[in-house]
Design a protein around this nucleic acid. Structure first.
Lengths: 245, 245
DNA sequence: GATCATAGTCGTCTGCCTGACGATAAACAG
DNA sequence: CTGTTTATCGTCAGGCAGACGACTATGATC
């Protein structure tokens, strides 16, 4: 076969889909948009869209993210500063996943701090934050369009695994946060309760994880808590252990 | 934009590329094929090819693997039995990664036991096992075609990370193997020396990791060693710790 | 103002696991 | 028989996590 002959390979549409996760009111939530047209009209789906002809995959994901949320992406490599964490998740290419045509979707994972209500995308689709537990609840009418439930599940599992051995949980926090706020992120993502004292010892004892800003806050009530920002460390060694079941 | 209009999205070629790793003579090695045509004619590249019109991504990877090596793939989920471990690695879609056209490549990672010399593919390209260290050695003439050095590097890093917390290292071993053979897999993949006594304690003490077959062997010389096969456990908790630096 | 509820922070203790390493066992080569 | 190689069992000290007691500093309530 000659790779120069366009008829030698089948043409695919390539899209990016986004699993945008945040922690709202102590609950892990994902960004979903309502589909305005068939198939799956009226159903909720992950945000996404076609990759443009001269666009890198990560750039397409960052563009879609900005269109849906106004967030600037923070690709791996660049560290600190504002913007959400963005990384490639996995690619989904079942021939039947889109009834219209052959679509290969490169899913991306975005971890964002708590945001104001999402703004409507350029195409005026309505968007909202939905609790992950409800979106993945088995067999109810809230099922996502296409194979998006599977994509979301993989994104959630990736996030759950990654905050174990990386400092990525800080991506869910505002630039300045307390140890308690960080703990509530872990608790929401993992769906477990953690001992505040052991958690405090662990995160403050890991070099480079947290840097004190000097300030304090009482926005959570109770005794004033020290404020921290994310340190330079990206890997946690030894990792934060997820309690077994 | 109407998704029904083919002109509404740019057409892409979609390929799968394979990072096939094995341990040969105590060295981590990857399968490479020599390119018979431009671009990069004569250079070594990762095996791969176009995804067919009605073919799933994993199926395309398994097909290419069989064409190049005769190996049957063992996708995640199915466990035990013969065949190599296959999992999706990452997707590479830089607009410039192939000078001929826009190609999005879904890279897959294959972990295989030591094999006889690779057989030529159906298209008669020559194939060989190359030491990973040489393929990734900086700046020499052995550089791989396209962005395959980057793909290989990600595959190697994935393998290094995954044998830490999973039983995947057994995928490099024949169906029946000794603790010493398994240790040499870890040493080759990580490029470090491990203490045989602590390693033995760790792997035999992790429930479900190894199952004794009852037999022994002296194929490594020295005192006869017990033979094991991989147990049902897929995750190692606590993980096997990779020595620092 | 005293009391209570809430949240943060510091310590202690115990058990498990790892790294370092000594010692013994069972094969083969000379 | 002796040395070499590999396998396997044991011992010991240090590090870290889980369980949990104690104290501190705020705001809310009586």
């Amino acid at each position: 076969m000659s790779p120069y002959d366009p008829s030698a390979f089948p043409p695919f549409a390539v899209t990016v889909d986004l699993v945008v996760l945040t922690v709202r009111e102590h609950v892990l939530s994902a960004l979903v948009v309502r589909r305005g047209e068939p198939p799956f009209q009226g159903r909720w789906a992950l945000p996404g869209g076609f990759v443009r002809a001269d666009e890198d995959l990560a750039a397409a994901a960052a563009r879609e993210l900005a269109e849906e949320t106004g967030l600037r992406a923070q690709s791996p490599g660049s560290s600190g500063g504002p913007g959400a964490h963005l990384e490639q998740l996995a690619t989904f290419g079942d021939p039947q996943r889109d009834p219209r045509m052959r679509v290969v979707s490169v899913a991306h994972l975005v971890l964002a701090p708590d945001l104001p209500a999402p703004r409507a995308g350029g195409d005026a689709r309505s968007a909202r934050w939905a609790q992950v537990g409800e979106l993945l609840g088995s067999g109810d009418g809230s099922a996502l369009a296409f194979d998006h439930a599977q994509i979301l599940a993989e994104g959630v599992e990736r996030a759950r695994a990654k905050i174990e051995y990386s400092s990525l949980a800080t991506a869910f926090c505002p630039p300045s946060f307390t140890v308690g706020e960080l703990r509530r992120v872990y608790e929401a993502v993992w769906g477990v309760a953690l001992d505040p004292r052991n958690f405090h010892r662990k995160v403050t004892g890991t070099p480079g994880f947290l840097v004190p800003t000097g300030g304090t806050t009482t926005r959570q009530g109770g005794r004033p808590a020290q404020l921290f920002r994310a340190g330079g460390a990206t890997v946690l060694n030894p990792p934060m252990l997820r309690p077994e079941v």
